[in-house]
Simulated scan of single mutants.
Amino acid sequence: MKTKFFYTFTVLFLFVTHKAQVGIGTTTPSNSAVLELNSTNKGFLMNTIALTSITSPSPFGSNVEGMWVYNTATAGTPPNNVIPGLYYNDGTKWVLMSINNDLPKIGDIKSSMATIDHDGWYLLNGRNVSTLPSISQTNAATLGFSTTIPNSSDRIIKGKNTSESINATGGSNSYSVTQANLPNVNITGTTSSAGAHTHNYTNRGVNYWNYNAGSINTTRTIDTEVRTTGASGDHSHTISVASGGTNTAIAQYPKHLVVQYFIYLGK
Rank of each mutant, 00 (worst) to 15 (best):
S174R: 08
S174N: 09
Y175F: 08
Y175W: 07
Y175P: 01
Y175T: 14
S176Y: 08
S176A: 13
V177N: 06
T178L: 12
T178R: 04
T178V: 11
T178M: 09
Q179P: 01
Q179S: 15
A180Y: 12
A180M: 15
N181P: 02
L182E: 08
P183A: 05
P183H: 05
P183N: 03
P183I: 06
P183G: 04
N184F: 02
N184G: 12
N184W: 02
N184P: 06
V185I: 09
V185D: 12
N186K: 15
N186F: 08
N186S: 12
I187L: 07
I187V: 06
T188E: 00
G189I: 02
T190E: 07
T191L: 15
T191A: 14
T191S: 14
T191K: 11
S193I: 09
S193N: 11
S193M: 06
A194M: 10
A194C: 09
A194G: 14
G195K: 04
G195L: 07
G195W: 05
A196K: 11
H197P: 00
T198E: 00
T198A: 02
H199L: 01
H199M: 02
H199P: 00
N200L: 08
N200I: 09
N200H: 06
Y201N: 11
Y201R: 09
T202N: 14
T202S: 10
N203Y: 01
N203D: 12
R204I: 09
G205W: 03
G205C: 06
V206Y: 08
V206I: 07
V206C: 04
N207D: 13
N207C: 11
W209T: 15
N210V: 10
N210Y: 07
Y211N: 14
Y211P: 11
Y211H: 13
A213D: 12
A213T: 10
G214K: 00
G214E: 01
G214F: 00
S215L: 14
S215A: 07
S215E: 10
I216K: 06
N217L: 14
N217W: 06
N217G: 12
N217K: 00
T218I: 13
T219H: 03
T219D: 03
R220E: 10
T221I: 11
T221Q: 12
I222R: 13
I222A: 12
D223I: 14
T224F: 04
T224S: 09
E225D: 07
V226K: 05
V226W: 05
V226M: 12
R227S: 10
R227P: 03
R227I: 15
T228K: 01
T228S: 10
T228E: 03
T228N: 05
T229G: 13
T229W: 01
T229Y: 04
G230K: 01
A231K: 03
A231R: 05
A231S: 12
A231L: 07
S232E: 06
S232Q: 06
G233W: 03
G233Y: 05
D234Y: 06
H235L: 01
H235T: 02
H235K: 03
S236P: 00
S236V: 13
S236L: 05
H237R: 01
H237L: 04
T238M: 07
T238V: 14
T238K: 03
T238C: 05
I239C: 13
S240G: 10
S240I: 04
S240P: 00
S240V: 03
A242T: 09
S243P: 02
S243K: 00
S243A: 02
G244K: 00
G245F: 00
G245D: 04
G245R: 00
